[in-house]
Nucleic acid binder design. Structure first.
Length: 516
RNA sequence: GGGCCGUUAGCUCAGUGGUAGAGCAUCUGCCUUUUAAGCAGGAGGUCGUGGGAUCGUUCCCCACACGGCCCA
C-alpha cells in the first residue's frame, strides 16, 4: 500500500484525537509515554494461579513480601467510583486481574495518570494482592507506571470482536479481545511441541528439507512458482517434503521427521489454506501398519496430555481418539456408505471395471466423469469422496488405495493393483496419509512415466518425473513406511474449530487495498 | 468458477421508499470495595463502492469490492 490514494481515510478521528491528547498530557507530566523498562515480578496469569486458592483472610495474613507484586498488563476496563477510587481490569491475554486505586493509596502523580488512562493502554502496577468484599482477587495499587498507549479503541467489551473478516485480517485485535482465540493458538502450539517430544523420544531426527524445489514432488497438487534471479531459475514452493525425506532414508537415517509449511496453489475452503503445516515422518524397516499404530499412539497421547481426555468435542459430536481406530478398505467404505446412493445401493459389481465404475459414478451424481480418463482408481477414489468421506466422523483408517493414484507407494504383496496405503479420516476430514514406501527404482520410474502420461492427458496435478529421486532409490532404500499429518486439521480437531482459518494465525485473505 | 447470505456510529446489532436507532465505548457532571458498576446529560453516520429506476432511496434494480457458508 504505497499509494496514499489506495488507503482508506483515517477513521475515527475524534476517538484517536482524544487518546493522542491523553498521551500528550502523560508526556507533559514528565513520564515517558513509551518507557523502556518495568521490572516484573508476576504476569497476570501468575497472580491468578498463585493466589486463586487463597481467600481474603488468608491473603491478609500472608507476609507482606509474598503478596507484594509488580504486574504489567493491558487495561481492558475501567470503573471509576467518583473522584477518589477506581477499579480496572488488567489482562495478559489469558487472564484478567482487577487492580484497585484509591486517591490515598498512591502518589498524587499516579492518581492523575490513572485519570488519563484509556482502555487498551498498557500499565505496570505495584501493590499488594487482596480480595475485595465481593471476594474478587485484586491488587491494591501503591505505584503506577505507564507502559504504552493504545491510540485506537478496542472492540466492545461484552461481545468482543465477532466480525470474522476482521478477526482474520487483524488477528492482533482478535487476540486482545478474545481469550478463546489465544487459547486456540496455545493449544496448537502445545500440540506441535508435544509432537516433537513424541518423535524425539522415539529416536526420530528432526530435519529440514527444501521449501524451494526445482521439481515439485511428493503430492498431487499444483505448485506456486517463484524465480531465483542469480541462477535465472524457476523454482517451486514445495507441495510436500516427501521425496527429500526419503532421500535421507537412502542416506542412512532410519527415522526422520519434518514439521513445516507446504504450499498448494488451490482453492481456499474451511479445510484448505494455500500454505499449511504438515508433519511428515519416515521409519525405516516399518510398513504402513506400523505407521497406523504409531499414529493411534500419538493422537491418543496428545489428546490425553493437552486436553486431559481422549474424547474431543467436535461441534455437536464427540470424537474418541482411543485406540484402536476403525479400519476399512476403500471399496468396503464405498459399499457401506453407498447403500442408500441415488439409483439404489452400490454393489461390488458396480465397482469392477472401468465401464461399471463410470456408470456408477454418473448415477451417484459425479459430474464430468470423463475427466478421470481411463483410470479406474481415480473413479473409485472419487466415489469414496462422494459417498463415504462425509460419514467418517470417528477416526477411521481407510486402507487398500488403488495403486494408480498412489505413485509413490509400494503395492501389497501379490496385489499389484492395491497400494499398501492408508488415509486417516477424523471429523469427516482427511487428516493423515501414509504408506509403505515404494523402494524399487525401476518400478518407481515406471510409475513416474505413467504420471507423466496422465499429465499429457490433461491432469495438471499428476506428478513430474524426478530423475534424481529415482537415482537415489537406485542406491537402495531399505523397506520404509512414511506418513503425512496435516497439523492444521489436527489443531482444528483439538480446538473444536470449524474452519482451518481459525487455527492459522494469519490466513491468506484477498488484500482489501492493493498496492499500486 | 456457481448458489445463497452479509456489509448501517469505534464495537455489537436493530430498522425504514419521505431528514437514521439502541447498548457498549467516547465526552461532561455525581458517586471511596465496584465488576456487563450505577445515575444524569452531550457528541458522534458518504447506511461497502459505482451506476440505474423513482418526485424522492440506506431501503428497489444492475454491476463491482470484500467476507461467510455450501457446491465444484
Amino acid at each position: 500500500m504505497s499509494d496514499a490514494e489506495s488507503l482508506p481515510e483515517v477513521p475515527l478521528p475524534e476517538l484517536i484525537a482524544n487518546r493522542r491528547a491523553s498521551r500528550e498530557k502523560i508526556a507533559q507530566s514528565g513520564r515517558a509515554p513509551y518507557p523502556n523498562r518495568f521490572p516484573v515480578t508476576h504476569l497476570v496469569s501468575d497472580v491468578v494461579r498463585l493466589f486463586s486458592q487463597m481467600d481474603g483472610p488468608a491473603l491478609d495474613a500472608a507476609p507482606e513480601v509474598e503478596r507484594t507484586i509488580r504486574v504489567p498488563g493491558r487495561v481492558l476496563s475501567i470503573r471509576r467510583m467518583g473522584k477518589k477510587a477506581v477499579f480496572a481490569d488488567l489482562s495478559d491475554g489469558r487472564e484478567r486481574l482487577q487492580v484497585y486505586l484509591r486517591t490515598d493509596s498512591v502518589p498524587a502523580a499516579d492518581w492523575e495518570l490513572f485519570e488519563r488512562l484509556d482502555i487498551g493502554d498498557h500499565i505496570g502496577a505495584e501493590g499488594t494482592v487482596f480480595r475485595t468484599r465481593t471476594g474478587e482477587l485484586s491488587v491494591k495499587v501503591s505505584g503506577l507506571t505507564f507502559l504504552s498507549k493504545s491510540l485506537r479503541p478496542l472492540p466492545e467489551k461484552w461481545h468482543g470482536l465477532t466480525d470474522v473478516e476482521r478477526k482474520y485480517r487483524q488477528r492482533y485485535v482478535d487476540l486482545i479481545a478474545s481469550p478463546e482465540t489465544r487459547r486456540t493458538f496455545e493449544i496448537r502450539s502445545r500440540l506441535v511441541s508435544f509432537i516433537r517430544r513424541f518423535f524425539d523420544g522415539r529416536g526420530f531426527v528432526e530435519v529440514e528439507t527444501p521449501m524451494m524445489q526445482v521439481i515439485p514432488g511428493g503430492a498431487a497438487a499444483r505448485p506456486f512458482v517463484t524465480h531465483h534471479n542469480a541462477l535465472d531459475l524457476d523454482l517451486f514452493l514445495r507441495i510436500a517434503p516427501e521425496l527429500y525425506l526419503k532421500r535421507l532414508i537412502v542416506g542412512g537415517f532410519t527415522k526422520v521427521y519434518e514439521i513445516n509449511r507446504n504450499f498448494r496453489n488451490e482453492g481456499i475452503s474451511t479445510q484448505h489454506n494455500p500454505e499449511f503445516t504438515m508433519l511428515e515422518f519416515y521409519t525405516a524397516y516399518a510398513d504402513a501398519r506400523d505407521q497406523m499404530a504409531l499414529t493411534e499412539e500419538l493422537f491418543a497421547a496428545a489428546a490425553a496430555e493437552i486436553l486431559g481426555s481422549t474424547d474431543l468435542r467436535w461441534g455437536d459430536d464427540t470424537i474418541s481418539l482411543k485406540a484402536p481406530f476403525r479400519r476399512i478398505t476403500m471399496k468396503d467404505a464405498v459399499l457401506e456408505y453407498g447403500a442408500d446412493a441415488p439409483g439404489g445401493p452400490v454393489t461390488a459389481e458396480d465397482l469392477i471395471g472401468l465401464s461399471a465404475l463410470r456408470r456408477t459414478a454418473e448415477r451417484v451424481g459425479i459430474e464430468a466423469v470423463e475427466r478421470f480418463g481411463d483410470v479406474p482408481g481415480k473413479l473409485l477414489a472419487e466415489l469414496f469422496g462422494a459417498l463415504a468421506e462425509r460419514n467418517l466422523l470417528q477416526p477411521t483408517f481407510v486402507v487398500d488405495y488403488p495403486a494408480e493414484i498412489s505413485p509413490l507407494s509400494k503395492t501389497k504383496p501379490g496385489e499389484p493393483a492395491t497400494a499398501d496405503r492408508f488415509e486417516l479420516f477424523i471429523g469427516r476430514m482427511e487428516v493423515a496419509n501414509g504408506f509403505s514406501e515404494l523402494n524399487d527404482p525401476d518400478e518407481q520410474a515406471e510409475r513416474f512415466r505413467a504420471q507423466v502420461a496422465e499429465r499429457a492427458h490433461g491432469d495438471d496435478e499428476a506428478m513430474l518425473y524426478d530423475e534424481d529421486y529415482v537415482e537415489a532409490l537406485s542406491y537402495g532404500m531399505p523397506p520404509t513406511a512414511g506418513e503425512g499429518i496435516v497439523i492444521d486439521r489436527l489443531a482444528m480437531l483439538f480446538t473444536n474449530s470449524p474452519s482451518i482459518r481459525d487455527v492459522i494465525l494469519f490466513p491468506l485473505m484477498r488484500p482489501k487495498y492493493r498496492a499500486s
